[in-house]
Design a protein around this nucleic acid. Sequence first.
DNA 1: TAGACGTGGCC
DNA 2: TGGCCAAGTCT
Length: 300
Amino acid sequence: MAEVEALHDTILRWYDENARDLPWRVPADEWPWPEVDRPWAVLVSEVMLQQTPVARVEPVWRRWMQLWPTPSALATAAPGDAVREWGRLGYPRRALRLHGAATAITGEHAGAIPANLQQLQALPGIGSYTAAAVAAFAFGIRATVVDVNVRRVEARLVSGDGHPAPSLSAAETRLAESLLPVDDERAARWNVAVMELGALVCKAATPDCASCPAASRCAWVLAGRPEHDGPRKKAQKWHGTDRQVRGKLLAVLRDAPGPVPRADLDIVWHDGGQRDRCLVSLIEDGLVEPLPRKRFRLPS
DNA sequence: TAGACGTGGCC
DNA sequence: TGGCCAAGTCT
């Protein structure tokens, strides 16, 4: 298919000229931190980037790589340290899962990130997207990486839809597979190039078609950029939800040097019933450790 | 499988 | 101003 190869060339060339310089993208032969395990660095970046913008991830990632340059280094730390250093990235269970992944990598894989889709996906916090991303970006394996950027770019470019459906379909996976270059190295670069195009140009709310290298062959543009008709992702509630309360409770513990008394947690939310429920759920999740005499801290 | 799960910036 | 959105995973 000469047409698909022309598309590859167009988007790969655009990526060469427009990619952001992100530290976790430095290739192995130029990796500037000999003490930092590069596959581990890639894995940590991918987990941090789940639902979280690059600008907020980068400083936290740098700090993590200083503190824990290898999986075994993190496995040695307390899980609460991972949660504290997670800062305000959001979804703090990711920090706990990363600690769990480090423990499993240390115990079951001799400290080396597995270069295998199935073994990667068996790690806590690593789903189909992250497993494929680590395989492709850390090891150069030809894996199909399908995140929301890829789904949106391909929805517009090929299917003519302004937005992807709320959840990933088998058809989208097949489409992404069909577009993946045959060559391993080229496939890995294609994955990150499409993601980058989605992040910088083919954006969800404000697509910049004027600067898109593929606009002339984009089904959605050629159709006149029609409004999206199908169902969109439901907007998440925030004010007054358990997630807001959990965030407030955890912020107190994160910012405290040691155990905090119950009273310090009670002041963050007026509704005592909801407060208690959220504290219990944080303890069940392993994000909070209860101590004697009604004191609490991040898990040791 | 729909819903839970943080946080902050942008238009 | 406030909904939308950001490299998802888990149950």
